[in-house]
Design a protein around this nucleic acid. Structure first.
Length: 397
DNA sequence: TATCCACCGGAAGATGGGGTAT
DNA sequence: ATACCCCATCTTCCGGTGGATA
């Protein structure tokens, strides 16, 4: 039996060209045993959870920091250890990511499920779900520690309604037995400032700030992943250093560093040289950008495509910084050509912002006085010509 | 100094498409 | 069949914005 698959191990010229040993380690979803560069935050978080050991309610918390600074990793890492330490104690840890559950209803739906209640995922009165949850929570007779990851996405929609009613519950509970504690994780630094007074007075979290990773910290992260996921001796140190330096310059996003490492390792494996070098990193930089933008564009709704097409065509026609007005004019023509009625300028203006937040275009405000305050497309993630090619592929269907 | 330009972006409401309950 | 409910997307409305211009 084994012999049948022996060709999998036979490598030409006896050299080992495999590089990746465990691909899972090279994904940002993987949470390693230690988190380089985040000792301070881990310690602070653990201290905040200390009261649970004495059956007392911890205070609410907020993690803030740019994308890829380890907020989610620290939360998961610490919670994993704490829930073992507190095994058997009347404590319930719940993690909910608000990028999927971005309305009060959907978070409440998840909370119902967490307490074993099955309710329809939509079409049901919200009040019923809230009542369900309250009853089940009291029934369970526990302290709840709820992590709301990417909570800013939820707050943007519901205005803090859920945050308020959850934290407000503590005022009606017997805190000697039950409590609700919320940890909100947010990518936007000012999300607390945007909360309503009433919400803030009952949520009022202790904050832990996550600064961007330095080049050294990124290097340590990459080294850790390489040791865990790559074949020993299959990478050049300079390759890791190069990723670390580049990503640190761009803003210290560990997710991006890990993406680059995975892509570089994949490319290195593909060319069968058996070693991951700086050259592979250089190729990976282009590939990662390209594939991210391609995926983003492919999933764009139709009107977004038309708006993007209008902007790209203006750039190609020689306008270095096309503004909303011109883009809208051209977009209108395209819409009619495709026999759909054009959206309003208000909406197109918002679509430009959405294209920006997807990293497809770069926008800058232009305070042009008599010519108006306008958004201006300053640049694109890929060369305009390349974008046009991708757009043509997508709109052909 | 007042006014204007040309768009910004928040708020609220309409619309239509998904669902559940009776 | 009817009466609800949730939700994403879009429109309508409207008070800013800040240099240019009168």
């Amino acid at each position: 039996m084994a012999a049948r698959y022996s060709h999998l191990n036979s490598i030409p010229s006896g050299r080992n060209v495999r590089i990746i040993q465990d691909r899972r380690v090279l994904s940002d979803a993987y949470v390693p045993e230690t988190l380089p560069g985040r000792d301070e935050q881990i310690l602070m978080f653990e201290e905040h959870l200390e009261p649970l050991l004495f059956n007392e309610p911890p205070s609410h918390m907020a993690f803030t920091g740019m994308a890829g600074t380890g907020k989610t990793a620290v939360a998961k890492h610490v919670l994993r250890h704490k829930s073992e330490e507190l095994r058997g104690a009347p404590v319930r840890f719940i993690y909910i990511n608000c990028s999927q559950a971005n309305t009060s209803y959907r978070v409440m739906y998840q909370l119902n499920r967490a307490f074993g209640i099955l309710v329809p995922p939509s079409g049901y009165p919200y009040d019923v779900l809230e009542d369900n949850f309250r009853k089940a929570f009291l029934e369970a007779d526990v302290r709840m520690f709820l992590v709301l990851d990417e909570v800013d996405l939820l707050v943007r929609r519901d205005g803090g309604r859920l945050l308020y009613s959850l934290t407000r519950m503590n005022y009606d509970l017997d805190l000697r037995r039950n409590s609700v504690t919320v940890l909100g994780i947010s990518n936007t630094l000012n999300f607390l400032d945007r909360l309503d007074r009433r919400v803030l007075s009952s949520y009022n979290p202790d904050r832990i700030f996550f600064q961007p990773y330095s080049a050294d910290e990124l290097y340590n992260i990459l080294l850790q992943r390489a040791r865990l996921g790559l074949r020993p001796g299959s990478w050049e140190d300079a390759a890791l250093r190069r990723i670390a330096a580049k990503v640190a310059r761009e803003g210290g996003d560990a997710r991006r560093a890990i993406d680059l490492l995975r892509m570089a390792a994949t490319l290195a494996e593909r060319d069968r040289s058996g070693k991951l070098t700086e050259d592979h990193v250089e190729q990976a930089e282009i590939r990662v950008d390209e594939s991210e933008v391609q995926v983003a564009i492919r999933t764009l709704p139709f009107h977004h495509l038309l708006v993007l097409k209008a902007a790209v065509d203006l750039l190609l026609a020689g306008d270095p910084r096309p503004g909303t007005g011109k883009i809208y004019e051209r977009y209108e023509r395209y819409a009619r050509r495709f026999l759909v009625s054009p959206l309003t300028m208000r909406r197109v203006s918002a679509i430009l912002r959405e294209l920006e937040s997807q990293g497809i275009i770069e926008i800058e405000m232009s305070y042009g006085g008599a010519r108006g305050n306008t958004k201006v497309v300053r640049g694109t993630a890929l060369p305009p010509l390349r974008l046009k090619e991708i757009l043509n592929e997508v709109t052909r269907v």
